[in-house]
C-alpha cells in the first residue's frame, strides 16, 4: 500500500519535471498530489488527505491549469543554449539537498517515535485538528491567515486600476 502511493507520488513528480507539455505536467502534478494524499491516509491523517485533494488538486492546480489554458501556449520553447555547468550544478545541488533532507528526517524524534509505535486505529479527525490549530498553533494559524489576507489585498490592489 505504502509502495503504491509512494511510487505514484514520485512518478507523478518525476513526470512533472520531465514532461514538456505544460498541461500534461499539471496533470502529473495532480497524480503526485493523489499519491501524497494516499500517504496521508496511511499515516492516519485522512483530514490532511482530504484537504490535500480539495485544496491543492481541486482548487489551486485547477487555477494553474486554467491560466495555462488561458495563455494557450501549445508549442514548447526549446532551450537556447545548453548550459552544462548549470545542469551538473543543479544535479549536485539536488543531491546535497536530498541527502540533507534524508539525514534530517532520519534523525527526527517523530520518526523514531513512529518506528517504535506504529500508527494505531485512532486517526486524526477534524476535532483534534481544530483543537490543535486553535490552541497549540494559534499564532502560526493567525499569522498564516494574516499573510493570506495581505496577499489577497495586494492582488486586488495590483489588478484594480483606480482604488
Amino acid at each position: 500500500m505504502f509502495l503504491t502511493f509512494a511510487i505514484l507520488a514520485l512518478a507523478g513528480a518525476l513526470a512533472l519535471l520531465l514532461q514538456k507539455n505544460a498541461i500534461e505536467a499539471g496533470l502529473c502534478m495532480a497524480l503526485s498530489f493523489l499519491g501524497v494524499s494516499g500517504l496521508f491516509v496511511l499515516l492516519g491523517n485522512p483530514v490532511a488527505a482530504a484537504l490535500q485533494i480539495i485544496v491543492y488538486a481541486g482548487a489551486i492546480l485547477i487555477l494553474v491549469l486554467f491560466v495555462i489554458m488561458l495563455l494557450n501556449s501549445h508549442e514548447e520553447e526549446p532551450a537556447e543554449v545548453s548550459r552544462p555547468i548549470q545542469r551538473w550544478g543543479s544535479v549536485a545541488l539536488v543531491a546535497v539537498l536530498g541527502l540533507g533532507a534524508f539525514r534530517l528526517l532520519n534523525g527526527s524524534p517523530a520518526l523514531a517515535e513512529l518506528a517504535a509505535k506504529p500508527v494505531t486505529g485512532a486517526s486524526t479527525n477534524l476535532h483534534s485538528l481544530g483543537d490543535m490549530l486553535f490552541s497549540q498553533h494559534l499564532l502560526g494559524f493567525e499569522v498564516a491567515g494574516f499573510l493570506l489576507l495581505a496577499a489577497m489585498i495586494g492582488a486586488v490592489a495590483l489588478v484594480k486600476k483606480n482604488l
Binding site: N45, I53, I54, A57, G58
Partner: peptide, 15 residues
C-alpha cells in the same frame, strides 16, 4: 469513523 467523512465527497467532487 474513518476520519474522512463528508470531506471525501467534497474532495472527489473537486476532482
Amino acid at each position: 469513523g474513518n476520519g474522512m467523512g463528508m470531506l471525501f465527497p467534497m474532495a472527489v467532487g473537486a476532482m
